[in-house]
């Protein structure tokens, strides 16, 4: 066993289902203690990747390493990782406590009753469900079931906790709360979290690093800031945050400018100093988003694009109406030339 810093690693992993290539030749190394998200649209191979780490699927080619040990071909029940399923997969015939202790009870030799009880109480306390042990899982709300699923996995102190779209089934408000709770939990227990999601906001807000996938391939892995500020291509820029694309000098490249980096003012002269581009534009649409207002504007030269104006400038300069002729501009560093892929 070598002491590689990765807790879990893909080496040239490919998974085919018949003619479908679900995961194509991926290399991925998850560092100990980090919160990594795999982000990508539906069908890009996120769940398949996770299932190969858990051991439910075996790669068609390539190798999987856990804590430096080659586990390719090792079944799920002999891998030191645990998973939180999208619909929680709590056992309906068992109480909450028996669900949570399930992993401990499979150990050989089985821990003593008192030891199991103490661990269950601890795990339930960790997810703020003290006293819920005797309930049945279907008597709990969605958010509570989610926390039982977390306790059931974390009680085993896995090398990595795998989470497959764990928040997708929750409503918006609860999802936001659970995002924060998951982050805190990860920090408290110090266990590596690997979360799969197609929600870019979720991935960016929670993770130390994000791995963007497309059609079975990893396109870019990096911190949320890196992905946002230095996307490797048009696909990542488009997927991570909102952006405007303008066709580049050649068809192989595009110019990307983030909407919040564009300044607007009542006219060209009212724009701040030091901008490289200054254009007259017409307001086509306006969407009030609370702390921001999103404008769609059009210029003769560049066509339509999006501008995100913070609330502060509205109060200073007033709100523009649809049809108004105003001005837009941006600094040189706002422009980013990206491969058009």
């Amino acid at each position: 066993m070598n002491h590689s810093p990765s807790v879990i690693e893909f080496r040239k992993v490919t998974k085919r289902f018949g003619d479908v290539v679900a995961v194509a030749d991926n290399d991925l190394a998850v560092k100990a203690g980090e919160f990594l998200s795999i982000l990508g649209p539906s069908g890009c191979g996120k769940t398949t990747s996770l299932r190969m780490m858990a051991g439910f699927e075996q790669p068609s080619s390539g190798e999987v390493f856990i804590r430096g040990e080659n586990v390719t071909g090792v079944p799920a029940y002999r891998r030191p990782v645990n998973m939180v399923f999208q619909h929680y997969a709590l056992f309906p015939h068992l109480s909450v406590a028996d669900n949570v202790s399930y992993g401990l009870r499979q150990r050989n030799p089985k821990p003593a009753r008192a030891e199991i009880d103490r661990a269950v109480d601890e795990a339930l306390a960790m997810v703020r469900l003290e006293g819920y042990g005797k309930r049945r899982s279907y008597e709990l709300s969605g958010g509570q079931q989610q926390r039982v699923a977390l306790a059931r996995a974390l009680i085993n102190r896995p090398a990595v906790l795998l989470l497959d779209e764990p928040l997708a089934a929750l409503d918006r408000k609860l999802r936001r709360d659970m995002q924060i709770e998951l982050q805190n939990l990860q920090r408290d227990v110090g266990i590596t979290f690997l979360l799969v999601t197609h929600d870019q906001e979720e991935a960016l807000s929670m993770s130390d690093r994000v791995c963007v996938m497309r059609e079975g391939r990893i396109v870019q892995t990096g911190s949320p800031r890196e992905l946002y500020d230095q996307p490797v291509n048009r696909y990542v820029a488009d997927f991570v945050g909102k952006t405007n694309f303008f066709s580049g000098p050649t068809g192989a490249e595009v110019l990307s400018i983030r909407p919040e980096q564009i300044e607007i003012a009542a006219n060209v002269n009212a724009l701040p100093e030091g901008l490289m581009a200054r254009l007259p534009v017409k307001v086509l649409n306006r969407i009030f988003l609370g702390e921001h207002t999103e404008y769609v504007v059009a210029s003769d030269k560049l066509g339509e694009f999006m501008v995100m104006a913070p609330r502060k400038s509205e109060r200073e300069a007033g709100v523009y109406d649809i049809g108004d002729m105003i001005a837009a501009g941006w600094r040189a560093e706002a422009e980013r030339i990206l491969p058009n892929t």
Partner: peptide, 13 residues
């Protein structure tokens, strides 16, 4: 996924 969950929690087939 209940079967998967059980195997994930170290239960043999």
């Amino acid at each position: 996924s209940l079967v998967d969950a059980s195997e994930d929690l170290y239960a043999t087939p």
